[in-house]
Every structure is written in structure tokens, then in C-alpha cells.
């Protein structure tokens, strides 16, 4: 069964179970995403992929909204652009993101999206929270200052590796990713040191220890079934 619909005045066709995001991507229509990662269960948490659908009361997250026949979708309205920039601003002020000294400078999805969506500074006040860094693992480190709580690491560790070493602690603005019973990563008995979490992290929050500033590039051949490699550099 095929469905037909319109995205930004472009007629497109889609499979019955496709999400708006999948159809948009198939047709080279850009919808920004951060928490979403093809191959992991979508959670609809970052809200960057919100789109307008005619007849809907509110905005719809493209990553989890299934297409319907005759849908009319708008992905680039002024309002959506404003909201998306604000979401990025929120992520920047929530943590402590200093691109100039970050291992992922130049390969960071958050940075790339900010460039692409025209977020060049924050109107919101920086919260400057005190956050920690854990480098107890022999190969990897986690810098909570750079974590945007997309929970990709939690999902890949649970859904693909099956270890479920990662999860989230607390709630709200106090949330944080943790390993096991909130013990240092290096002491974890469940971690297989597979490195999948590091590969799917959109920022420099999870990194390889040997990497210096701007050296933390993702490996193209690693986990081919996970679409980890964004063309972050090409669309700057």
C-alpha cells in the first residue's frame, strides 16, 4: 500500500508504516533531528523535528508520526525555525559547551545544526551548571558538560549491545546519564567496552581517551546498521 501526501508543497509517496521523517529523508527534504538515530527506537524527545500538519491541533514530531493519505505537511515555517533555534539555544545554555576545546569540534551534530539553522548566539541566559567528567574507563570518557540527554547511548547499549550499562539518573533539569548504580564507568561490570555509545553520541560527551581537540571522528565502518555518520561537515 502506498500513500500520497504533500511536504512543503512537494507531492511525495510513502509506505503505509513510514514516518514523516523517513518520507522527508527519502525525498531529500531536510528536517533537523538530534535524539533520533536510524536503527534505534525513536523517542520524540528533542522536539527539533516538529512539523506542522494541516488539521492537527498541535505540532507533530516527524520521527514518530506516521504518514496518512492526503497529509499536508509544512517543515520550514517561520514559527518552526524559531522554535528549533530556541531548542538549540536551550541545549547550549543547559550544559557547558565550549566548541573551541571540544574533542568533537567540527564533527559535532549539535554544532552542525546550530550552524545550519542559523543559531549564532544564545538569547537565553547560560545556566553554567557544575557538571562532572568521568575518565575512569580505560578507553573512554564521559563529559557531562557536553551531554544533551538524547539517550542515544542508553538506547544503543540496551537495544543493540544488550548490556544496558547506561541509563538516566534523576529527572528534569537534574537528569544525568549514568553507568550501573551511578558508579564510575571504569568500575562497571556490565560494560563490554564495545564503544557503541561513543559512536552514537551526537556531541563530545562520550569520547575516546586518546583524542585531542577536534580529533574525535566517528568511524564510518562501525555499526553499519546504525546511521551514525551524519554529513555534519558538508552542510556548514
Amino acid at each position: 500500500m502506498v500513500k500520497t501526501l504533500r511536504i512543503d508543497d512537494q507531492d511525495v509517496s510513502a509506505g503505509t508504516d513510514d514516518t514523516i521523517l523517513q518520507v522527508a529523508q527519502d525525498n531529500a527534504i531536510f528536517i533537523p533531528t538530534l535524539c533520533n538515530l536510524e536503527g534505534l527506537k525513536p523517542v520524540g524527545a528533542c522536539r527539533l523535528c516538529l512539523v506542522e500538519v494541516e488539521g492537527y491541533r498541535g505540532l507533530a514530531p516527524a520521527c514518530v508520526t506516521r504518514v496518512e493519505e492526503g497529509m499536508q505537511i509544512y517543515t520550514q515555517s517561520e514559527r518552526l525555525q524559531t522554535y528549533r533555534r530556541m531548542i538549540l539555544e536551550m541545549l547550549f545554555v543547559e550544559g557547558n559547551h565550549v566548541c573551541a576545546v571540544c574533542v568533537s569540534n567540527g564533527t559535532c551534530e549539535l554544532q552542525a545544526l546550530a550552524q545550519r539553522l542559523g543559531m549564532d548566539h544564545s538569547h537565553l541566559e547560560y545556566r553554567n551548571p557544575a557538571k562532572s567528567v568521568d575518565v575512569s574507563h580505560y578507553r573512554f570518557g564521559v563529559d557531562h558538560n557536553r551531554c544533551i540527554l538524547c539517550a542515544r547511548c542508553v538506547r544503543v547499549c540496551d537495544e543493540i549491545e544488550g548490556a544496558h550499562t547506561w541509563d538516566l539518573l534523576g529527572r528534569g533539569i537534574q537528569s544525568q546519564v549514568i553507568t550501573d548504580l551511578n558508579r564510575p564507568w571504569g568500575e562497571s561490570k556490565t560494560c563490554t567496552s564495545c564503544g557503541k555509545c561513543v559512536q552514537v553520541c551526537p556531541t563530545g560527551a562520550l569520547f575516546k581517551k586518546s583524542k585531542a581537540v577536534a580529533e574525535m571522528e566517528k568511524e564510518h565502518e562501525f555499526l553499519p546498521y546504525l546511521n551514525t555518520i551524519r554529513e555534519v561537515r558538508s552542510n556548514g
Binding site: 524527545a45 531548542i87 541545549l91 528534569g172 533539569i173 537534574q174
Partner: peptide, 18 residues
């Protein structure tokens, strides 16, 4: 709302704090 936010989505987690 800030301390009861689950923290899953960005606007609620960060927005309520701001």
C-alpha cells in the same frame, strides 16, 4: 513544574528551569 519535569524532552526540561 521544573522539579516534576521528567526531563525527557528539551523544552520542558530546560524551558521550565529557564
Amino acid at each position: 513544574c521544573m522539579s516534576e519535569s521528567c526531563g525527557k524532552c528539551v523544552p520542558c526540561r530546560v524551558g521550565t528551569a529557564l
